[in-house]
Design a protein around this nucleic acid. Structure first.
Lengths: 227, 227
DNA sequence: CCGTCTTTACTTGTATGGAAGTTCGCGCTA
DNA sequence: TAGCGCGAACTTCCATACAAGTAAAGACGG
């Protein structure tokens, strides 16, 4: 009944539609495309030298990932940052990652990867490289998931994280990056000490920082948000 | 910079491509389309009386939701149930819903909606109506999220839940539905008593049941699973 | 001067044809 | 008979044309 299994799940070269999607995706997350901005199939198609069809399919993927809104016969727009979605994603991350932190504290695994990401973040901070700083931040949390023996969990959180990352690219130029790093160090200290309670508290405190940032950013850029 | 906000976010009649997607989506979750089964653009298009294009776009959405796998120039197949994805989704649900249960126990809100879903599940169980049973199960958990003051969290969990629901439609004909209902009653009892610790324990125990079901189903239908 | 209707220029949605690539099977060759 | 090669039939992918719908600008009537 079921057909043959895939022998090579690695696509050697993605389709052009996939490439267009990946490009737009990173543009949205980095803030090169701003919330509410209009996207035109024909314009993007001309810009990348393709027909409308692959661009259109890229839009569909974007919309399915919650990054764009297709209004039939009217236009496609970069989705505004839903405050409800951000708060929901934040709540989920807090619940999941605090659970993961407890596991890591109990397992006492090798934590050199987390040290490495903190070092990388330190360098990005010194160089004022905001994208690299955010990437190192993500890798720190991914390393924690891996240390907990559940690396695939971080993949599932990626989608939810997308909305949060958009917010961070707006706020990271304003907010205190040193405080973020201090929180990471506090988490790592608790993990190395094997103190599950302290690790959970540190993770929850770290992720609750966004509860302060969100209303400030929403007030500063009301056109970028909904809800 | 940002354009006008959407006045009517409610699409009165979705595009046909969207309808095709919704149809296929429910077919996959209900098990009418089995993991590994081949999908053909031309065949589906002929079956619904449309051209290949809207069907193709429905496939893209399915793939983006993790329910189908498009292998370029080779074919599109219903995705197999990834054991890693199921375990990851289960872990996330346990972490999030145990947190929500603690909140509900502290808030002491109106819990009549949960009672109603248990009653509905009892009726579905008596009528041997498996889909209705599963739907009532989902509504119970959704009602708990709403009682915790975070209904949007359940929406985010829907995507992850999709993989789990596919598994349940396979296993619900085999496994003990009475045990599931007893677990729901235990959760509700703890919530009504306002006992956060007991509520969390009951939720975790309920969601850990899948750890038993998954290997059994994977052994019974190895062709439907990967990892 | 203001309101209303019509036209026109856009948008996305769908249909169709062909291009690129994969798979399977038949026939040839050793 | 076993192995190789080629071709036919299939797949998804992309390009193009057309259809349906929206919105805004302008003409017209009051």
């Amino acid at each position: 009944m079921a057909d043959d299994p895939a022998p090579l799940p690695l696509p050697r070269s993605a389709s052009t539609a996939q490439q267009v999607h990946d490009w737009l995706y990173s543009c949205v997350l980095r803030g090169d495309l701003l919330p509410g901005q209009r996207l035109s199939e024909t314009e993007i198609a001309a810009r990348v030298g393709l027909s409308r069809q692959p661009v259109r399919e890229a839009f569909i993927r974007l919309a399915e990932n919650g990054l764009a809104e297709i209004r039939p016969q009217r236009g496609t727009y970069i989705g505004r940052i839903s405050m409800r979605a951000v708060l929901s994603a934040r709540l989920i991350r807090e619940a999941v990652e605090s659970d993961l932190a407890r596991r890591v504290a109990g397992l006492r695994p090798d934590l050199s990867a987390l040290h490495a990401q903190i070092a990388a973040q330190q360098m990005a901070h010194a160089a004022e490289d905001v994208p690299a700083f955010i990437e190192a931040d993500d890798r720190f949390h991914a390393a924690m998931a891996e240390a907990a023996g559940a690396p695939e969990v971080w993949q599932d959180l990626d989608r939810l994280k997308a909305q949060m990352n958009r917010l961070r690219h707006l706020s990271m130029r304003v907010f205190d990056r040193a405080a973020t790093m201090a929180q990471h160090r506090a988490i790592l200290e608790a993990l190395e000490a094997g103190d599950a309670g302290a690790a959970e508290a540190a993770v929850r405190a770290h992720l609750r920082q966004m509860l302060d940032e969100l209303p400030q950013m929403a007030a500063a850029h009301p056109a970028y948000f909904t809800d």
